[in-house]
Design a protein around this nucleic acid. Structure first.
Ligand code: DGT
Ligand code: MN
Ligand code: MN
Length: 432
DNA sequence: TTTACAGGCCAC
DNA sequence: AAACGTGGCCTGTAAA
């Protein structure tokens, strides 16, 4: 009603002084005026422009996946000796741990026997149904979340206009929804076929730019660790080196998949993973996991100290702070519950690094938006440390140069920031 | 019929 | 799961 609206408007007016004082108190005036407010219009343009989608391709893929699922379903029922709802983890658990008598590996938070992928991998050799369900889950995920998720969101312009939310993540990252275009499959071969559905317009190409090892570089800057600083100044790739060490390879035999796994290990260890978790992921013993952890932190002696100080400071002042002054408040650190406090400590380890990386990317986006000619190159997607542009063919070379310079030079850190750039007519075909 | 949560899984 | 962090979306299930 009108009077309520008036009352609220007056309340907002009265809030202005209070909020501005608070902001100045926190030293966040520049964060607001030079980062978050200018970003609003960049995100609005991305959402309005959208990204082109090949609807016919997606429809065909949906039919193919449906046929695959029907075949898998028959095989699974044969192996089970009966029918059941494969999508129901409860019903599948009864088949697996009841009918077939396989051992329970772990329980879910509410005490049911878990059937998640890590459990099924351990049981894969015990019964043929296990591998079939793993495959069923992969295919069903792609069909339900991606094919069926995208199709109804394609507009009359044959484009998807996802949202990029500025307040979606407590570290300062963006989030995306309706649909989420920050989690387009890339890991599995089948998953990557989804990417072919995202297509540049006739006469245009996608230009994709992704920061190299971004949070490790941020960490090098924040911690001043000599090992990490030296590695980046020498142009080393820590993900590849970790892959070589833990998988017993040499740098030139590290596959893309091995590097991806090593990435999860590198960040896991930094953000509080323990020997138990590492052993589980690498399928090795606890002692061997311990050794890997020791080797890892011995390479980077000052990282441990930095991480300790981050938690201490967070406990003292109640929040963490990023490069550009963004805060994450962590009341969990004062909880009476040990588990909650531990969780708070891991959040404190992660927030300044993930948040600073988000700061850097936001500044680069603002800088680039001001430099791109809208008829030549449009920013379409942000995937945390990656930007996707749609670029007129005759402007590709100049845009690649501009994007690289802006992303690499947006802030001066104690380590170089480097960017990998790829080009392609669709997201599956993007190649460096 | 709608809503909330659990379990699971995609990405960075 | 006690045991890297940040998100969003799917289906099944039970409660409202
Ligand atoms: N805590 C945590 N953070 C992750 C994980 N995967 C990615 N991130 C964060 C840290 C990365 O620096 C950042 C960007 O992800 P990327 O896939 O681009 O990896 P990164 O830039 O490190 O390596 P790159 O050289 O691009 O392959 O997202 C993860 O498994 N755990
Ligand atoms: Mn990256
Ligand atoms: Mn990335």
């Amino acid at each position: 009603d009108l009077e309520g609206a008036g009352t609220r408007a007056v309340a907002v007016r009265d809030l202005q002084d209070v909020m501005e004082a608070e902001l100045a108190d926190r030293d966040q005036v520049k964060l607001l005026r030079e980062m978050e407010l200018p970003l609003v219009r960049v995100l609005a343009r991305m959402e309005q422009h959208g990204i082109g989608v090949d609807q016919g391709y997606l429809e065909e893929m949906g039919a193919d996946l449906g046929a695959d699922l029907a075949g898998l379903e028959t095989e699974i029922y044969e192996q089970a000796g009966r029918t059941f709802n494969i999508k129901s983890s409860q019903q599948f658990g009864k088949v697996l741990f009841g009918d077939l008598g396989l051992p329970v590996v772990k329980k879910t938070s509410r005490g049911s026997p878990s059937t998640d992928a890590s459990v099924l991998q351990k049981l894969e050799d015990a019964h043929p149904i296990v591998g079939l369900v793993l495959r069923y889950r992969e295919v069903e995920k792609l069909r339900s979340t991606y094919v069926n998720g995208y199709l109804p969101l394609i507009g009359p312009d044959q484009r998807i206009h996802a949202r990029f939310n500025q307040t979606g993540a407590s570290t300062g990252r963006l989030s995306s929804d309706r649909p989420n275009l920050q989690n387009i499959p890339v890991r599995s071969e089948l998953g990557r076929t989804i990417r072919r559905a995202f297509v540049a317009a006739e006469g245009f190409r996608f230009v994709v730019a992704d920061y190299s090892q971004i949070e490790l570089r941020i960490l090098a800057h924040l911690s001043k660790d000599p090992g990490l600083l030296g590695a980046f100044k020498a142009g080393e790739d820590i993900h590849t080196e970790t892959a070589a060490r833990v998988f017993g390879l040499t740098a030139d035999t590290v596959t893309a998949d091995a590097r991806r796994r090593a990435k999860a290990i590198n960040f896991g260890l930094l953000y509080g993973m323990e020997a138990y978790g590492l052993a589980d992921r690498l399928k090795i013993g606890r002692a061997e996991a311990r050794e890997h952890m020791d080797t890892y932190f011995r390479q980077f002696p000052d990282v441990r100290q930095y991480l300790r100080e981050v938690v201490q400071e967070a406990r003292r002042v109640g929040h963490t702070t990023t490069l550009f002054g963004r805060r994450r408040y962590l009341p969990e650190l004062l909880s009476g519950n040990w588990r909650t406090r531990q969780m708070g400590e891991r959040m404190a380890l992660n927030a300044p690094v993930q948040g600073s990386a988000a700061d850097v990317m936001k500044m680069a986006m603002i800088g680039l938006d001001g430099r791109l000619a809208p008829d030549e190159a449009r920013m379409l997607l942000q995937i945390h440390d990656e930007l996707v542009f749609e670029v007129r063919e005759d402007a590709v070379a100049t845009t690649v140069h501009l994007v690289r310079e802006m992303m690499e030079g947006v802030v001066e850190l104690d380590v170089p920031l480097t960017v990998d750039v790829g080009i392609g007519p669709d997201l599956a075909s993007v190649k460096g």
